[in-house]
């Protein structure tokens, strides 16, 4: 995204929304000469990236390009295999369904997490007694180790002794085999993942809301705007950079999720709730005899998916800019 970033959008929008504010800065200012010195601020993080991410990333690529067995993993000397591992993965009959699950899992999780998170953020942004305390309490699920929260969900969704089925029974609905039928298992892990993701969306969006100056609302309240108009007229446009980054990060974290699914269903029954991330884990670490190569290949495919998402993000950003 050369030279143009969300900055001027936000500022321009702010200027536009609060009509009393001074006009936005001319766009030419953003295109000022070389700013190499700014790397001084970026140096620590750059060194840090190089130090801690380069090696694991290199390692993951290397694992996927060689034919590793347990023996060569420990002793070294795995033969170079080119793209064989990728071919193995792509031609595996499980690839198609697993990719579909990954996309459904990601799309559904993001939609619900973001919508519910946004609704809660807007609700708690109003000031009423206890609002702060309640909002802090909603974050408690984040304090729980995943093994605990995911186990609790599989407890609640158990076919025979789960509370959800007991509650359904009270209103006369037949028990659902949430975790043990191929038709429901993906839905169940999505529900748990949405629950775990809501606090993240809530916190980030809430902080975004707080950054919007209250005068803007006051001004529009004077103009007689309704709550709905205010949301679409002020909140939504001003929250755009934060919303976009929340969605992008949410996407990345969701693509990566494996522990929740692993604990709840192990990706099963029969792969019906397996995503690329759980598949990668199962191949590399969830078996007595690890297959590091294909496992790493799937991991790299996930990185490519995230890259595509990043490119889309930049496209959206830029189009926003040009509009």
């Amino acid at each position: 995204m050369p030279s143009t970033t969300e900055t001027s959008t936000a500022v321009r929008d702010q200027g536009g929304a609060a009509s009393a504010a001074p006009p936005g800065p001319p766009p030419s200012r953003a295109r000022r000469p070389s700013r190499w010195w700014a790397w001084g601020f970026l140096a620590p993080v750059t060194i840090y990236l190089a130090a801690f991410y380069a090696y694991p990333l290199y390692r993951n690529v290397e694992l996927s390009l060689r034919e590793y067995t347990v023996r060569s993993f420990v002793q070294g000397g795995a033969p170079f295999a080119g793209l064989d591992n990728y071919r193995t993965v792509l031609t595996d009959p499980a690839f198609g369904p697993t990719l579909t699950h990954t996309l459904v899992f990601t799309a559904a999780s993001l939609t619900f997490q973001f919508t519910i998170g946004m609704a809660l953020a807007l609700f708690f942004h109003q000031h009423f007694p206890l609002s702060r305390t309640l909002r802090a309490l909603i974050l408690v699920p984040w304090l729980l180790p995943l093994i605990v929260s995911a186990s609790t969900w599989s407890w609640l969704l158990n076919s025979d002794s789960g509370l959800v089925n007991a509650a359904l029974g009270v209103v006369g609905i037949d028990p659902v085999n949430w975790l043990t039928s191929p038709g429901w298992s993906l839905t169940s892990v999505i529900i748990a993942n949405v629950w775990i993701g809501i606090p993240f969306n809530l916190v980030v969006l809430y902080s975004g809301l707080q950054a919007i100056p209250t005068e803007m609302y006051e001004a529009s309240a004077l103009d007689g705007a309704t709550g709905w108009q205010r949301f679409w007229g002020i909140t939504f446009p001003l929250l755009r950079p934060v919303s976009l980054i929340t969605l992008l990060l949410g996407l990345i974290y969701t693509l990566k999720v494996f522990d929740i699914i692993w604990i709840m269903t192990k990706g099963g029954p029969t792969g019906s709730s397996a995503t690329l991330a759980t598949w990668s884990y199962r191949l590399g670490f969830g078996n007595l005899l690890p297959e590091f190569g294909p496992g790493a290949a799937i991991g790299n495919l996930l990185i490519v998916l995230a890259l595509i998402a990043g490119l889309v993000y930049i496209r959206i950003e830029r189009r926003q800019q040009l509009r």
């Binding site: 158990n158 025979d160 085999n177 043990t180 099963g268």
Partner: peptide
């Protein structure tokens, strides 16, 4: 046998 066996660990089955 209960349907939950499909997802039971040995601990869960013992709890049942």
């Amino acid at each position: 046998a209960p349907n939950s066996v499909i997802n039971n660990t040995q601990t869960t089955s013992w709890q049942e």
